[in-house]
């Protein structure tokens, strides 16, 4: 029973949790959401650019996208965040006078997620049947308009589940920005838990942080499953037999 008590005290010290939870609501949660949403938006825009470069007919553009994606996907996130945060931070400080590493954290998360989202978009766009491009061009649309109006929208649609998964990963990876030493008001869920754990010598604040993360990620996971199933089954609409053609067909058979 000693062990059980010890575990309960280490992980489920209600008092320690109660102390940290208001701060997580007031500071940690908004910061985590801002980090994930802003870098998610920038990463999506960057990813779309990379995807279009990746399928471009211009070889140089394809190479730039390829090299960028290979590097950013190949590095551990912790390394990317440190290098960008500490490497480019001083330059930004000199240019803007801002000492906050917050923009650098967003930049690092955006650059990383852009590489993954670019691959997601590229695979989606390339999975669209080539007859779609052909039919659009046959109507008289240019290559660019055909891609923009017909091919790319279909490609994006079918990778929405993968895109939401990437956003879930981004929420989790946003915890790594603690390494940049954020100001007290800029701290996200994980760092608030970490600070409280360090002060109290108790792990319960981490458990509180875990609950916050799960409250964000589990609904998103189920949202992915929902849109995935919806896209597989399609909108429920009844398919009718081809009345007009059937009349001609059957009647003219004899």
């Amino acid at each position: 029973m000693d062990i059980l008590n010890q575990l309960a005290e280490t992980f489920f010290d209600w008092e320690a949790m109660g102390e940290v939870i208001p701060k997580m609501f007031a500071v940690g949660l908004p910061n985590t959401i801002v980090l994930a949403v802003v870098s998610g938006i920038i990463g999506t825009a960057l990813g779309m650019l990379l995807a279009l470069m990746g399928i471009s007919r211009n070889a140089a553009a394809r190479w730039v996208a390829r090299i960028y994606t290979d590097i950013l996907r190949g590095l551990p996130p912790v390394l990317t965040i440190l290098v960008i945060g500490f490497g480019f931070g001083p330059i930004i400080r000199e240019l803007t006078g801002s000492t906050s590493p917050y923009p650098m954290a967003i930049a690092a998360l955006s650059l990383m997620s852009g590489a993954y989202i670019g691959e997601i978009f590229r695979s989606g766009i390339q999975s669209v049947d080539k007859g779609q491009l052909e039919a659009t061009r046959a109507l008289g649309f240019s290559y660019g308009s055909s891609m923009r109006l017909v091919v790319v929208p279909q490609g994006i649609r079918r990778v929405l589940p993968a895109l939401v998964n990437q956003f879930i990963a981004l929420i989790k990876e946003s915890s790594l920005v603690f390494m940049l030493g954020l100001l007290a008001t800029e701290r996200e869920i994980f760092q608030i838990g970490k600070d409280a754990a360090a002060n109290s010598g108790n792990l319960s604040p981490y458990v509180a942080a875990a609950i916050f993360y799960l409250a964000l990620t589990i609904p998103l996971t189920h949202f992915v499953n929902f849109i995935d199933a919806r896209m597989r089954a399609g909108r429920p609409e009844k398919k009718e037999p081809d009345e007009a053609a059937a009349v001609v067909g059957k009647g003219a058979q004899a």
Binding site: G131, Q132, A135, A138, G140, F141, S142, P153
Partner: peptide, 20 residues
Amino acid sequence: PDELRRRIGMVFQQFNLFPH
């Protein structure tokens, strides 16, 4: 060529309607 294709209609084996 885009202008030429506006003057020539084309119908395909797989229909190629825009599903979205």
